[in-house]
């Protein structure tokens, strides 16, 4: 099936099988391997990306469903500089170890930070509760998100 969509600001035309989910399409047909696949049934959150401005589980959206849509992956968010401060805070706080969950963790955190203000640590934990990290643990990740929120609020 032919689909046409915007991926990280570039118009893409492609032929996909209906059963191909969005992340397989991005990774295998477009070579965008920053979006990761963990469980592939919506539990781990490693495949989190933005579709039409909101975060989704990339493994729970078919590529054909994204036809006509606007997809933003970690590659796009990194290149645009939108989350450069958040990425720097992750490094400063040691908020990643193996890095497998990190792209999705950054995108989910940015989804919360976009609302503005400084969310409580409980609110940060709740917003990231669908993203599993199996090595660093969550304290440093919450630290990095909180630090970024405070810095953004201070520079307003």
């Amino acid at each position: 099936m032919n689909i046409s969509l915007m991926v990280n600001g570039e118009q893409v035309e492609a032929d996909v099988l209906p059963r191909t989910h969005l992340v397989d399409f991005l990774r295998e047909q477009l070579g965008l391997t920053g979006t990761h696949l963990g469980c592939e049934h919506g539990v781990c959150g490693a495949c989190t990306l933005r579709l039409d401005g909101v975060i989704v589980r990339g493994c729970l959206v078919l590529a054909v469903q994204a036809d006509g849509g606007v997809v933003e992956t970690i590659e796009g968010l990194s290149d645009s500089g939108e989350i450069a401060d958040l990425q720097a805070a992750f490094i400063a706080r040691n908020a990643l170890q193996c890095g497998f969950c990190t792209p999705a963790m950054l995108i989910a955190a940015q989804d919360l930070l976009q609302h503005g203000g400084v969310p409580s640590r409980e609110a940060i934990r709740e917003h990231l509760s669908g993203n599993y990290c199996r090595c660093t643990g969550y304290q440093a990740i919450v630290d990095a998100v909180e630090t970024t929120a405070q810095a953004r609020e201070a520079s307003r």
Partner: peptide, 26 residues
């Protein structure tokens, strides 16, 4: 029928469901 797909897609990926065709009403 496919609406939001947030229960159907896991079932498809795990092959607990294997329809011939999805009718996307979303």
């Amino acid at each position: 029928l496919l609406a939001g797909g947030q229960s159907l897609l896991p079932a498809l990926n795990l092959r607990l469901s294997a329809p011939d065709i999805l009718i996307d009403i979303s």
